[in-house]
Nucleic acid binder design. Sequence first.
DNA 1: CATAAATGTTTTAAGTATGAAATAAATTCT
DNA 2: AGAATTTATTTCATACTTAAAACATTTATG
Lengths: 160, 160
Amino acid sequence: MSATPDIRPAEQGSKQRLRLWLRLLAVTRKIEAELRERMRTEFDSTLPRFDVMAALSRNEQGLRMSALSGVLRVSNGNVTGIVDRLAEDGLVMRVPVAGDRRATLVRLTAKGAEVFARQAADHEGWIDAMLAELSADEARSYAARLRTLAQRLDDKGASE
Amino acid sequence: MSATPDIRPAEQGSKQRLRLWLRLLAVTRKIEAELRERMRTEFDSTLPRFDVMAALSRNEQGLRMSALSGVLRVSNGNVTGIVDRLAEDGLVMRVPVAGDRRATLVRLTAKGAEVFARQAADHEGWIDAMLAELSADEARSYAARLRTLAQRLDDKGASE
DNA sequence: CATAAATGTTTTAAGTATGAAATAAATTCT
DNA sequence: AGAATTTATTTCATACTTAAAACATTTATG
């Protein structure tokens, strides 16, 4: 029966986690805003376009629309418009899938691959500069911690 | 002149930081998606609406549109539509500023404050559950690290 | 084989995002 | 005071976002 008030550990933890989330959100948004701005001014492009091209770059044989939206974790309908615009610019192409006339495969064109390579190099450099404060070891350890956290979130999501 | 190949520490660090960024983005998006989904199903609302109400809740006397967009770090024009819809629902009101007919103050209505209180309590609970894996101390230390990182990013942005 | 169910994609409706242009009002300058 | 500039907000054009509906095609089932 001390005179100090109860700290109520559960509630305390909740506040700490809320604070962490708000900071996480703030940092992520700030970095994203910077990347978007640079994509816009230096490549006249956007992050979603870059994300799509990155996914296609890792799958040279192409990806179906559904696979693409799965990889990027955005809704199916969303990818349609982005691919439309990339196709208009000649950066990707739609290829029919033999034996399934519902599906289409999306692939980078030669021009698309070339453009993406340049963008990816700069993109990595921008991030490196923004996170320069973190040592390689520190970056590695945080990435590992986030990995287990993401895993846990995935498990939870799957069980619901 | 050893036979082991150069590791090129700078490039290594760059890859680690890129990986960290991608994980950060993945975790943030996953949590955001979960919060959005819950806001939608349980309160028929959205995160941007919640963010605006949270900012107004911290400033009972009200905020100008420009202050609001500054706090939320979204563009000015964007906030107009969100406040419009909140006003339609009777959750916020626009109050003229005495002595400056250009400006308007936005404030939570009584109903808005009441609705927000309920949403905020649940919101904190959702985050607490998603980050339950982290101890209060761990959350605190990560939050502190992110704070210095955010500070550094702000400094950089200001100098450009 | 014909219909029902499932799958792959696009379209639609509503909301959110940006940057830039437009509008309106206040302040500063001459 | 009158003109030029700055400040506060809205409007506009375009892109991205989701969820849900619509459409087309394939696979499964009776």
